[in-house]
Design a protein around this nucleic acid. Structure first.
Lengths: 341, 341
DNA sequence: TTGAAAGCGGTACCAG
DNA sequence: CTGGTACCGCTTTCAA
């Protein structure tokens, strides 16, 4: 790998001149002819600056990291896309780091990342340990949480999960459902809590009494959906519809329902949270709520960049704009129970 | 951020001693008491080495990059997992970089990565431009292709796609199918070519004449599967089964078939390549061939690490071990056509 | 056993 | 307009 020194030698100038030319420094001017020579020499040698050396001097390497717990979760694909675009547009490099398998050592993992490899981190880790956040705050390290809120974290960007859930459950109510179950996510996840909140609000607003038997708490996994739906359908008075906290949960629920002989939507309607290609591939197509995840990614990068530059700006942002995507997993029911009583 | 100098000052020793203690240098010995003082000082300050400075000096930063075209493709999840584990086990840091959206600038993208941010790269980019590989070779940069072979590339690790395809098609043949279509992947992808080859070999071995109308070429997308299946079922003499080159293609095919009123497996059997959770969530469950993708990731990291260390070793590896995962998308048919003639 | 110093590849300030 | 130089934080060789 050629260095500045090599280019300087070839061009017959001092290396500081090469640096100026290549960074086109406005402060000092360079004779046009010299500039030419330098550029040609750099070209000829295939010179490419060393990010380490530059980063060491500049205290900034021009890259950000997005830390993700599980790359295979489709939720992250959209956040990544948004973050990627935004980073690229502002001339930064986005590196992804998966913590899968590193769980017990997340803190060490973060430290390794923060040794100078990146200028700041975006944490999409829903199950992130508070200790990590404390360490980040203590070290005054530039960071932003995405898709997760935390008491300890000063900065985050999240979607309006409660509003999204409201949308989902209202849809079910409009279609005549009154006995609506909820496959909730892990109580450790802020998003799960807000979705449950939205669920309760929707019921409340419709004058439906909340029945705690109808909500089963689990994790954000397909397996959790399978278990949950089994529990709901074996209730003495099972729900006619269910709101799943997550796409994976919904998919698992559909899978289990099918195996149990529960037809969707005939026997059970279902709407899931978060829209992705999977929702369309399921059979029947899953009605979902689309969250502005790509926007989350973009906004997180913007915020992080502001922080690294020491610029002021909002530190907590809630992105609204959830919308219902109707497919075939919800059926309309007559309000028989009502009129019969 | 405290530096070596800060620790040295606090411990009352020279910074070179601190370096020795912290890296527990075997060559020079340090008085036990001094060692203690240094460690305490480092601890007290929360010292953490600067990877940039160290990397600049050592010409190695202890991290590798895995470059992926599209993070949402489930194929990569497994490769990533394997690579991650292997990297971690050997004390390296695996960074992921997605090229999505950077397509026309992949070369620049690679250069940015190779400015010193990482010690080497693993390219999982199936549609990678040859120019990138040439540049990598020319720059003698440590790299390994994974899940893709190339004339220009000296190093790669791939699965035995042809054998996997053989497995899939043989399964169909054993179940009595003789008119078997193939939804092929993009001719630019080495994996697609090998899968098509396996398909042909299987037919040949069974004495089934190859009918070019039964193979429709596309891309590795769900949309391609949709289009392909539509084309196949509208043939004057449509196939009774189809082998999809990819999980996404299979999923798209199933989706389109459903919309066209073609029942699976009753009207059309289908087997896909690459097993992932999605295969199980589809309805009916998709029979697939499981490829040793996690192993691909592991092996790629091992190879890359060897390269960075200048150690000898195999440069092309083909991982065998594909296996059939039976679910519900294939039905057995009687060999009526045979006996009737 | 410890200290001093060179240098990795850049950037930026200062002097000529 | 150009050259010289200090320094970013760390590793490592050489002397004391």
């Amino acid at each position: 790998m050629p260095t500045l020194r090599d280019v300087a030698r070839l061009a017959g100038v001092h290396l500081s001149i090469v640096s100026r030319v290549l960074n086109d420094d406005k402060k000092t001017s360079v004779k046009e002819e010299t500039r030419q020579r330098v550029q040609e020499a750099a070209e000829a040698l295939g010179y490419w600056p060393n990010a380490l050396a530059r980063g060491l001097k500049m205290k900034s390497v021009g890259s950000l990291a997005l830390v993700i717990p599980d790359i295979s979760n489709p939720v992250y694909a959209e956040i990544i896309r948004g973050a990627e675009q935004e980073a690229r547009q502002s001339g930064h490099f986005l590196l992804l780091a998966s913590t899968a398998g590193a769980d017990p050592r997340t803190l060490e993992f973060m430290q390794a990342l923060l040794e100078g490899r990146v200028d700041g981190v975006i944490l999409a880790n829903a199950l992130l340990d508070d200790a990590v956040i404390d360490a980040l705050e203590a070290g005054r390290y530039p960071y932003v949480l995405v898709n997760r809120r935390s008491q300890r974290a000063r900065r985050y960007v999240v979607a309006d999960d409660a509003a999204g859930a409201l949308l989902a459950v209202n849809h079910l109510i409009e279609r005549g459902h009154r006995r609506i179950g909820h496959l909730a996510g892990p109580p450790t996840a802020d998003t799960a809590l807000n979705r449950k909140l939205g669920y309760r609000h929707a019921l409340e607003a419709a004058g439906i009494v909340f029945d705690r038997d109808l909500v089963v708490e689990g994790s954000y996994s397909t397996e959790s959906g399978r278990i949950g739906v089994q529990q709901l359908v074996s209730l003495p008075h099972p729900p006619t519809a269910v709101f799943a906290a997550n796409l994976r949960v919904a998919a698992g629920a559909m899978d289990a329902a099918r195996r149990l002989g529960v037809r969707i939507p005939d026997d059970l309607s279902i709407v899931g949270m978060h829209d992705a290609e999977l929702a369309e591939l399921l059979s029947p197509g899953l009605t979902t709520v689309r969250l502005p995840l790509e926007g989350l990614g973009r906004e997180a990068v913007r915020m992080l960049l502001r922080v690294t530059r020491g610029e002021p700006g909002p530190e907590q942002v809630v992105l609204t704009g959830a919308e219902l995507v109707e497919r075939e997993s919800v059926r309309t029911i007559q309000e028989t129970a009502h009129s019969a009583s």
